[in-house]
């Protein structure tokens, strides 16, 4: 029993660690619609605010805004993971930088909400 429980602990520890690495400690916006299909080899751009500074990372590696386009240019798709509480005016420069690199679409990453909703969340 101890062996099984230990294995379960290691499993949950690893899965939890991987999940937290991928999400980059972001509070994702909630959405009741979307597509669950993940595009392989897509670049995940994580956007969050630390103090008053915008922090960007691509697949876990910190990237300055000016280098973002160059970093994701070769990726087949760009997944945009921005913190739900970010003001839109802090996200739009990221979109502008992606557009400047020739990226014409992104896939906005949201957390699945169980039921349709509206209003201030």
């Amino acid at each position: 029993m101890i062996d099984v429980v230990m294995c379960l602990i290691v499993f949950y520890l690893l899965v939890g660690q991987l999940a937290s690495d991928q999400r980059s400690d972001l509070t994702l916006p909630r959405s009741a619609a979307g597509d669950e299909t993940k595009i392989t080899q897509a670049a995940f751009v994580n956007v969050r605010l630390e103090g008053d500074t915008l922090q960007l990372d691509v697949d876990g590696s910190p990237v300055p805004l000016s280098q973002l386009g160059r970093t994701v240019r070769a990726a087949p798709a760009v997944h945009l993971r921005a913190d739900a509480s970010l003001p839109y005016e802090r996200v739009s420069p990221v979109l502008a930088e992606l557009r400047g690199a020739g990226v014409r679409s992104v896939r906005v990453v949201a957390e699945q909400a169980m039921a349709p909703f509206g209003g201030d969340r």
């Binding site: 959405s31 619609a33 299909t37 992606l98």
Partner: peptide, 22 residues
């Protein structure tokens, strides 16, 4: 410890992808 890890995993929900053009 096992219950703690199981509970903490539940909070990391699945992700959706919403396509948007720039």
């Amino acid at each position: 410890i096992l219950i703690f890890f199981m509970a903490s995993i539940v909070f990391v929900g699945p992700e959706w992808f919403l396509p948007a053009a720039i």
